[in-house]
Amino acid sequence: MERAMQNISGDSYDTQQFVVFQVGNELYGINILIAESIERIQPITRVPKSPSEIIGVINLRGDIIPLISMRKILEYDEEDYTDSTRIIITEFDDYRLGLIVDRLLEVLTISTNDIQLSIDDMSDKDKIYISGIINMGDQPITLIDIPKTLEKINIIDKQGV
């Protein structure tokens, strides 16, 4: 599968769509092109000796999907799952992974121009790879490049050459 483009192109008429979710008390977004479906939380099987960010695996209609805790990646403490906890199933390159988030908000369609590329010292969370910031509503939304983030923390192999 083609790597979903999360880079921001210069064309002012471009729009992009992001799945916006909440972890802790902040909002984050991932490109909709890598999101496959949204699932409710379900029984998770722990995998011994796996990286700490991988919480375990679930049975998604007969396929085994590893789950990644966005709380771990964004450096929040783990909390019990609630009714609003969701799993965003993502698919990119040869990977199929679920991201556990506290709450799902919306799918946001936004002009590429409205994405701010970077702020100095934007985040103290050094585990993630930020592709931009949306500052439109009440609260800013941090856009995370999931494949690059997972590469950074060695959950997935380096892509490309």
Partner: peptide, 18 residues
């Protein structure tokens, strides 16, 4: 069933079954 590429480094389990 395979655990998927992300868990290919976990050697102690060879796969999973439903």
């Amino acid at each position: 069933k395979s655990l998927g590429k992300a868990l290919s480094n976990v050697k102690i389990v060879s796969g999973a079954t439903i």
